[in-house]
Simulated scan of single mutants.
Amino acid sequence: MLSTMSTPARATEDRADPTSDTAHRLLEAAAEAFADRGFHATTTRDIASRAGLSPAGVYVHFSSKEELLYQLSREGHEAARDMLVAASAGAGSPTEALRAIMGTFSRWHAEHFRVARIVQYEFGNLTPEHRDAVLGLRKQIDAVVRDVVTAGVATGEFSVDDVPDTTLALMSMAVDVARWYDPEIKRTPAAIGEAYADLGIRLVTAR
């Protein structure tokens, strides 16, 4: 749609900086709109209105609503990866690392459930190039957890027959929190994180 439009030099410079205040406001507006209406039902006009801009103002920073979806997905996955790396690095053993990872990841999916749902369930609406980029980040996230499980098996702390399948199960548990979580439920994100940390350890130590 925008490939046929001429773009001023200033617009090109701004579009290269997704961290600007206006771009950040657009990302927040897109997250709200995608969460409320879904990607396909959301228009750039919807996003612009929520951000207090004209529809043309969106294109100064993002070439399309798909690019907004990609930026949300990329930032979400990068935050998750960095969070898990930090949780693992601060632990003194594989058991402590896995407990920290599961607690942190599950809590994050409750605290940021709206964005997490977009990241997980609108993935198919990304372009092939953007899907590949996000898949690369998912592999990095998977590697953090897989390395911890592998280390736990090596030290004898974990009893796991299939490390890749167990890693997938652990991550699926945490990610699924975004699907069912609702702020109206009595369980807090912190309580959910503690419960899933225990469940994760049970999964790898069951005999």
Rank of each mutant, 00 (worst) to 15 (best):
R25F: 02
R99M: 01
T44Y: 04
S93P: 00
A31F: 00
T4D: 10
D147N: 12
A35R: 01
R207N: 05
P128R: 11
P8C: 00
T95F: 01
A154C: 03
A29R: 04
R81H: 13
L126C: 08
L26W: 01
E13C: 07
V115S: 12
A9K: 08
P164R: 11
I118S: 14
A79Q: 11
L84G: 00
G38E: 07
A206H: 14
T22Q: 10
A133G: 01
S106M: 08
L68S: 01
A195W: 10
T155P: 08
L2T: 03
I101Y: 03
A116H: 11
M173N: 10
R15M: 04
V160T: 07
H130Q: 14
L68G: 02
T205M: 08
D162K: 10
T167D: 02
V163G: 00
S49T: 13
H77T: 13
E66Y: 02
D132Q: 13
S63M: 02
E157F: 05
L203D: 06
Y196A: 03
G156C: 05
S20E: 05
A174N: 07
A110I: 11
T7E: 10
A91P: 00
I201T: 09
E194V: 13
D142Q: 13
D147L: 04
H109N: 14
E67P: 12
D17E: 09
E66M: 04
A87T: 13
I192V: 14
A143E: 12
V85A: 11
H109F: 11
T44G: 11
G193T: 10
L98C: 03
T104Q: 06
L72R: 03
E75M: 04
I118Q: 11
F39C: 04
E129R: 15
M171V: 06
A87Q: 06
D161C: 04
G152S: 08
V148F: 01
I201L: 15
T166G: 02
E66L: 05
L26A: 03
L168V: 09
E13M: 06
A97M: 10
V145F: 00
G200D: 01
S6V: 07
E75P: 00
A178F: 12
I192F: 10
R146G: 07
V149K: 05
A154Q: 14
S73F: 01
L170E: 10
T22A: 08
E66T: 13
